[in-house]
Nucleic acid binder design. Structure first.
Lengths: 170, 170
DNA sequence: CACTTTAAGTCAGCGTTGTTGACATTCCAA
DNA sequence: TTGGAATGTCAACAACGCTGACTTAAAGTG
């Protein structure tokens, strides 16, 4: 009954990959994989009194130097108070520089310092190593499918953010 | 330089999908997609004074009724104090039943009550709807690749847990 | 039987990271 | 020039991870 739509065949193409059981597998795969995805950076950050939120902020400041607090807010999808706490510690610790905007003095433009860049490299190297190993293991076709599904799972708003970041880097 | 391994060609097969930029895209896709992945259950749970931790517990108790606290601990990868806080509220609220083991009276076997099953259904229906839409949009080959990459990203320990859950359901 | 190990639960405390509410500053437009 | 919108900051609170110390009960072992 719940699998009514999946047990049908449309245009000669099997829909067995849409059963509740298949979807449940995908859900659990996301859960376990995300743990692996964050495990390496988490290990590096623990003991530095930093967490995942700091990692995310550093990642996106690295990708878009000079971005404003508001822009970062939209990308990260958290409240500005939450982000502010993270940014404050990063600025205090000399990993991020916050410059008052020239055109609009309300805005703060964010940049990684040398120390910030070093930590970003350490974190992303670890994360990329795992991704690279996974990619290499399964091959380019599987990777293409992986990205297609992830993109389709996003909210439209996030999808827009995701594609904007891709465009900004060519 | 960082892309040295990716800019080579091995056995005539392009490795361009292993560049740092491609990996970075995958990392960001995981980030945004996970937000979408948890968005619907989070929406349902907010206001019930429950959170993601409760959802995870309910999910795995549903999948493996009668599981013990210790087993759940291994699957979820959290401390027993953390899980206990969540389980206690679920038992108090009548969503989960905790039965003393017959063979080993130290163990507690966990079951969803009718109310617990109802909430599980509500949560997983929402999450599966999003997954089903994504799957349908991209087709079975992409879904196969998606699962391959996710599995390759897991820690070996998690991969074992994941496969065990699959086997238990055929 | 005495001893050790194991499963589960409890209590106290802490850190990260979400949340809302109140507030200061700056810009812009009526 | 004044009022509203936008931007960012500070304070307090809640959810949920964590560690450490402890108790209880049952199982296994010498």
């Amino acid at each position: 009954m719940a699998d009514a739509s999946a047990s049908q065949v449309l245009g000669g193409e099997s829909l067995l990959y849409l059963t509740d059981e298949q979807l449940r597998q995908g859900i659990e795969a996301m859960f376990f994989a995300y743990r692996g995805f964050t495990a390496d950076p988490d290990r590096i950050l623990q003991g530095l009194s930093y967490g995942r939120a700091h990692h995310r902020a550093i990642h996106f400041i690295h990708c878009a130097p000079g971005t404003t607090v508001n822009n970062l807010l939209n990308i990260l999808g958290v409240t500005k108070q939450s982000l502010n706490r993270v940014l404050r510690t990063l600025v205090e610790d000399g990993l991020v520089e916050s410059r008052v905007g020239r055109a609009d003095k309300r805005e703060r433009h964010l940049y990684l310092t040398e120390a910030g860049d070093a930590l970003e490299k350490q974190l992303s190297d670890a994360q990329r190593a795992r991704m690279r190993a996974a990619y290499r293991q399964v091959g380019p076709e599987a990777v293409a499918g992986f990205k297609q599904v992830l993109e389709a799972m996003m909210d439209p708003e996030m999808q827009r953010q995701y594609q904007k970041l891709r465009e900004n880097r060519g």
